[in-house]
């Protein structure tokens, strides 16, 4: 079990703070990161895997600063699924998934038995076996996300960060992607994922962190974090007969 911890973290992008004085710790489960556009979700995830320099504070994993980790070790410990879904080249799904093993590659870059097994487990966990041998250019948006998810699973890191994995997917794919993430969390991986859809977050996450203008506005179990007060203050909406309406 790995404990990811943010201690008073501030990240500045240009002249503005993207996140300000953020503190939280997480060690298990599916943690959803929600908040309006520009509230700092992506920046928080990038800070969690050491992709962005911190203005202040520290991000640590099991007590060690992520910024001080050698890149390969960090790559083995924290898997990151960014929002970018375009593959630069028309590679096969399986070849993309195999890139998840990059932090483990030896100097000759031969795929080991362990790599192959991890790739298969990743494909299984993301339910992406059926189209793994196809060129990614020919895959639908949902299939492509599942391939990229399998790529992130194939790292087999104790921490998985996912940035809006369900954006622009149809409802069935949204559910299957979140189910896969929840299952992964069930296997002991800490999954921290930014989500737009509050009802999906409430349904699948064991804990929700609400971001607002770069700060944590609420943090707790779903019904606690997404209280009527927070919905109205942060998102400008309120519950009405089970649906969300403009406040």
């Amino acid at each position: 079990m790995s404990a990811l911890s943010f201690d008073n973290v501030t990240v500045r992008l240009g002249a503005q703070n993207a996140i300000t004085d953020v503190s939280f710790a997480a060690e298990r489960g599916l943690v959803a990161l929600v908040g309006p556009n520009g509230s700092g979700k992506t920046t928080l995830l990038r800070a969690a895997c050491g992709l962005t320099p911190l203005q202040a504070g520290a991000v640590t994993l099991d007590g060690g600063a992520i910024a001080a980790m050698p890149p390969r070790q960090r790559g083995r410990t924290i898997a990151y699924l960014p929002q970018e879904r375009r593959a630069a080249w028309p590679m096969s799904g399986r070849a993309l998934v195999a890139l998840g093993r990059h932090p483990f590659a030896g100097p000759m870059r031969r795929e080991s038995e362990m790599d192959r097994a991890a790739i298969e487990r990743g494909l299984d966990a993301a339910d992406a076996n059926g189209f793994a041998d196809r060129n990614v250019d020919t895959l639908s948006g949902g299939e492509r996300v599942r391939i990229l998810l399998a790529r992130a699973f194939a790292v087999e890191a104790p921490v998985l960060l996912a940035d809006e994995p369900t954006a622009a997917l149809d409802p069935a794919h949204q559910l299957s992607v979140l189910q896969a993430l929840q299952d992964q969390a069930g296997r002991g991986t800490l999954v921290l994922t930014a989500l737009h859809d509050l009802s999906l977050a409430a349904r699948f996450a064991s804990r929700i962190i609400v971001m607002d203008q770069g700060r944590i506005a609420a943090d707790g179990a779903p019904d606690e974090a997404l209280s009527d007060k927070i919905l109205e203050r942060v998102f400008g909406v309120r519950r009405q007969n089970g649906d969300l309406e403009l406040a």
Binding site: L51, A88, L99
Partner: peptide, 11 residues
Amino acid sequence: SLGEDAAASLG
């Protein structure tokens, strides 16, 4: 091939 962020996250 996965983009700069994903590559950086892989070390």
